[in-house]
Design a protein around this nucleic acid. Structure first.
Length: 682
RNA sequence: GGGCGCGUAGCUCAGUUGGAUAGAGCAUCUGCCUUCUAAGCAGAGGGUCGCAGGUUCGAGUCCUGCCGCGCCUACCA
C-alpha cells in the first residue's frame, strides 16, 4: 500500500494533468477486492448450509462461467455431493437453492445444465460497492519475503536473458507489494566467481594491462566498459578453451578469493564498474533493488567458513578420498536428487581449496533466513531518482546505520530453469542442517531461457550451421559473445517508438516526444518479456519485440491514455468530473448496469485484485499481463462503442464517465504492477 | 541412461488447477478515420489439443505407455 501510494504520487508529480482529471478527489479504486468479497459471501453461505443440513465440511468451489449468460459465478457443488448423497445432481441443486434462501449481494440463483447452480449478482449493489469501497490498510503485512533476482555476473554487459530475469523478478515484487506483502529485493553479486576471473585474466595475461589502466578504461564513457568486457570475455573464454593448461583461471580465481594482489584489485575494479552499468541498465526499465549482497563478503566475513563448519559437522558434506572427485568436499547426490547414481555427488569445495558457487550460495541462503548467525556490513551504493537507496555489502564496519536486511520467512530465487539442479543442492544443504521449514520456504522461481530465433540470428549477422538453422531457437552464450545486449535492444526500441511518436505528434517538444517514446519502448519490452509463461522458452525475435500492436504493452498503454484523455477533454470544455458517489445512487447504477455490455465490462474491470492475487498464488506474472490486455480490450471496445462526452442523458453521462474513470484507475493500477508507465499522449 | 520442461489454428502463445460451445495476438481476407486519438474497432476463414490406453457424470487439463523437441546431469554458473 505504501509502495502504491508512492508510485501514485510519483505519477502525479510527473504528469500534472492527472491532478486536474481527478479533480477534487484522486479516487483510489484499487486494493479493494470487491468481487472477492461477494465471492466469499457466497462461499460462506454455502459452507454454513452444508454444515447445518448435511453435517459436511467440504471446500465449496466457486467458478466463473466462461459464458456470460450463465451469470457471474457458478457453483458445481451438486456434482460433488451427488457421489456422497447418491442422488441426482439436479435434485441436490434444487435443495441447495431452496435451503439457502437469499444471500447478501446475490440477485438470483438458478439451476442450469445437469446441476450447476448459476449465480447472478445484484448489479446495483455491486456497482455501489465498487464506488464506495474504502482502500485497504494492510501495509507490508506479514513476515518479510525476500525476492532475489537479476544476479548477473559482473563481467560483461547485460543481455536479453538477464532482462527476462530482472523483469520477471521485479514484476513479481510489484505483485506482492500491491497485495500488501512486505518484500525485500536482493541482487546477488558474484564478484569472485569464474566469470569475473576470466575477464580479469583477459586483461592481465592477454592484454597485459595494469589495474590502474583497467580503472582508467572503466572510467571512460566511450567505449562502454561493459561492452569492452563483453568482447574481452568472449575472446578470453575462447583462448582458454583452446589452451586449457595455462592455469590463468585458477591463479586468478585464487587471487580474487584471497582478496589481495593485482589480480584481486583488478577484479574489484571490473566487478564494481560493471555492477554500476547493470544498475543503470535496469533503472531504464524501472527496476530498483534494496540490497546487493556480494560474494566477496561471503568469503571475507567468513560466511562460507561458518556454513562449511556447519555442513561438515552435520555430515552434509564429506571429503572424498577416491574416484574422480578425490580431494574435494562433496555433497552426496542422494541428498538432492531422487534416482541418482552414487557417482553424481556435487563438488562443494574443489581439490584446489576454492569454493564452488553452490557452496557460497548455501551460505547466502542461510543468511537470508537469518540462520548463519552473522551479518554483512553495508554502505549505501546509490540513491535512485525517486529517493530510494540501494545498499551494498561490505567487509568493514560503517558509521552510517543500515536498514535490517535478511531474516526472511520466505525466499524466492529468480533463477533460470537450467540451474534447478543447483537450487536443489542449496535446498538439500538447508535440509541437511536441520532447517526444514526454511528449506520448504526456499522457492526456485524458475523460468526458461531467452534464446534467439534463427531469423534473429540472421538479422544479427550470425552464421549458423545447417543443423542450427533447423532448430526452433539458438541458445545465447556469453562465452561466445552470442546474444542481444540489453541496452542495444532498449535503444532500438526507443528509436522505433520515436519514429511513431514523431509522425503522430510532430508539434510536441523533442524532449517530451523522447520521454513518451522511452515509456512506450519500456512498456513494449517489459510486456514482451512478461506475456510468456515462465516455462516457455522465448525465441527472441526483433519483429515481435518491436511490435506495438495487438497483444503488446503499448496497446494497454494506449487504452489508459485514451481513458485519461476523456477527462482532459472534459476539463478543456470547462467541466469537472462529477461527484460520482453522490450522483450515482444504487438505483441509478442498477438501471445503467441492466445493459449487459456495461455490466460485463464493469465486472471484468473490477477483477484486477482477484487476478493479481491469483497470479501471486500461481507465481505467474504472465497472468497479470494477460489480464491487463483483456482489460484494455474491454476499454477500447467501450471507448469505441459509446460516445461519452456527447451523451445527452445526464444520468447516463455520469455513469459513462464513472466507467471511464474506473477503467482508467484499474488500467493504471495494473500497469503499475507490470512496471509500465502511462505516457501523457500516444 | 537418469532428472526437469515442452508438444493446442499457417506462425507465436493462453487455457483460472477436472467443468458447459477449446481462446488471443500475428499473418491472410472484408468493412470503419469530418465524431472522446485508427498504436484502434467490427467481421470472415483457419483445430484429430503429438499418439494410444486408463480413471469418471465430465479430460486440452489427472494416471500409464509410447513418439518428437529442448534443457540439465562440470573441480562454469
Amino acid at each position: 500500500m505504501l509502495e502504491l501510494e508512492r508510485s501514485v504520487l510519483r505519477k502525479k508529480g510527473n504528469l500534472g494533468h492527472i491532478n486536474i482529471i481527478a479533480g477534487h478527489v484522486l479516487t483510489l479504486y484499487f486494493v479493494l477486492p470487491v468481487f472477492h468479497r461477494f465471492e466469499l459471501n457466497l462461499q460462506q453461505a454455502f459452507s454454513q448450509f452444508l454444515a447445518a443440513r448435511y453435517g459436511l465440511d467440504l471446500p465449496v468451489v466457486i467458478e466463473q462461467p466462461k459464458q456470460p449468460e450463465f451469470g457471474e459465478l457458478a457453483v458445481p457443488l451438486a456434482f460433488q455431493l451427488a457421489r456422497q448423497l447418491r442422488q441426482a445432481p439436479k435434485k441436490i441443486a434444487a435443495e441447495l437453492i431452496e435451503g439457502i434462501g437469499s444471500i447478501d449481494g446475490v440477485a438470483a440463483m438458478e439451476i442450469a445444465g445437469n446441476g450447476y447452480i448459476n449465480i447472478r449478482l445484484d448489479r446495483g449493489a455491486y456497482g455501489q460497492a465498487l464506488l464506495r469501497a474504502e482502500p485497504e490498510t494492510s501495509a507490508g503485512a506479514g513476515g518479510k519475503i525476500v525476492v532475489e533476482h537479476t544476479n548477473i555476473n559482473p563481467n560483461k554487459a547485460a543481455h536479453i536473458g538477464h532482462l527476462r530475469n530482472a523483469v520477471l523478478g521485479d514484476t513479481f515484487v510489484r505483485m506482492l507489494r500491491s497485495r500488501g506483502r512486505n518484500v525485500e529485493v536482493q541482487n546477488y553479486i558474484d564478484n569472485t566467481g569464474v566469470q569475473v576471473a576470466d575477464v580479469v585474466a583477459g586483461f592481465h595475461f592477454l592484454e597485459r594491462k595494469t589495474p590502474s589502466e583497467v580503472r582508467e578504461l572503466a572510467a571512460r564513457a566511450e567505449p562502454r566498459f561493459d561492452y569492452v568486457c563483453w568482447d574481452l570475455y568472449a575472446r578470453t573464454a575462447q583462448h582458454l578453451n583452446q589452451n586449457p593448461d595455462l592455469g590463468w583461471r585458477s591463479e586468478t580465481l585464487h587471487a580474487i578469493e584471497a582478496g589481495h594482489g593485482e589480480l584481486a584489485e583488478m577484479g574489484a575494479v571490473v566487478a564494481g564498474a560493471i555492477v554500476e552499468h547493470h544498475l543503470d541498465t535496469m533503472l531504464r526499465l524501472g527496476i530498483e533493488y534494496d540490497v546487493l549482497p556480494r560474494e566477496s563478503e561471503i568469503l571475507h566475513l567468513q560466511f562460507w567458513a561458518a556454513a562449511f563448519e556447519q555442513l561438515r559437522h552435520t555430515g552434509a558434506v564429506h571429503l572424498e578420498t577416491q574416484g574422480k572427485n578425490a580431494g574435494c568436499w562433496v555433497m552426496p547426490a542422494a541428498a538432492f536428487s531422487a534416482g541418482s547414481e552414487v557417482d553424481d555427488s556435487k563438488v562443494i569445495v574443489r581439490s584446489n581449496g576454492t569454493v564452488t558457487y553452490v557452496g557460497k550460495d548455501i551460505a547466502y541462503q542461510l543468511w537470508k533466513f537469518g540462520l548463519l548467525g552473522k551479518d554483512f556490513y553495508y554502505r549505501p551504493l546509490r540513491q535512485y531518482p525517486d529517493g530510494h537507496r540501494v545498499w551494498q555489502s561490505t567487509d568493514q564496519p560503517q558509521v552510517e546505520p543500515a536498514p535490517a536486511f535478511g531474516n526472511a520467512v520466505r525466499v524466492y530465487n529468480v533463477i533460470d530453469a537450467r540451474q534447478s539442479y543447483l537450487q536443489d543442492v542449496v535446498v538439500a544443504g538447508l535440509k541437511a542442517l536441520g532447517a526444514v521449514r526454511q528449506a520448504e520456504a526456499s522457492i526456485h522461481f524458475s523460468y526458461e531461457m531467452v534464446a534467439l530465433s534463427p531469423r534473429c540470428c540472421a538479422d544479427l549477422g550470425i552464421e549458423l550451421s545447417e543443423e542450427d538453422r533447423r532448430r526452433p531457437y539458438i541458445e545465447v552464450s556469453g562465452r561466445k559473445g552470442l546474444g542481444v545486449k540489453a541496452d542495444d535492444l532498449i535503444d532500438q526500441l526507443i528509436a522505433t517508438a520515436l519514429r511513431e511518436v514523431d509522425s503522430r505528434h510532430p508539434e510536441d517538444p523533442e524532449q517530451t516526444r523522447r520521454r513518451v517514446a522511452t515509456q512506450i519502448a519500456v512498456g513494449a519490452l517489459r510486456y514482451f518479456l512478461l506475456k510468456f509463461t515462465r516455462p516457455t522458452v522465448i525465441a527472441f525475435d526483433f519483429q515481435e519485440a518491436l511490435s506495438f500492436e495487438g497483444e503488446t504493452g503499448p496497446y494497454v498503454q494506449y487504452a489508459a491514455v485514451r481513458a485519461r484523455s476523456i477527462g482532459r477533454k472534459l476539463e478543456a470544455r470547462g467541466a469537472t468530473l462529477p461527484d460520482f458517489a453522490n450522483e450515482l445512487t444504487r438505483e441509478a447504477l442498477a438501471r445503467q448496469l441492466q445493459a449487459e455490455d456495461f455490466w460485463q465490462m464493469l465486472l471484468a474491470a473490477s477483477k484486477a485484485d482477484s487476478a493479481i492475487e491469483r497470479a501471486v498464488a500461481a507465481g505467474e506474472p504472465a497472468n497479470v499481463s494477460r489480464y491487463a490486455f483483456t482489460l484494455a480490450q474491454a476499454f477500447n471496445n467501450f471507448y469505441h462503442q459509446y460516445p461519452i462526452l456527447s451523451e445527452t442523458d445526464r444520468e447516463k453521462k455520469v455513469f459513462l464517465l464513472w466507467m471511464t474513470d474506473f477503467f482508467r484507475a484499474q488500467l493504471e493500477r495494473v500497469l503499475g504492477v507490470l512496471g509500465i508507465e502511462v505516457p501523457e499522449f500516444m
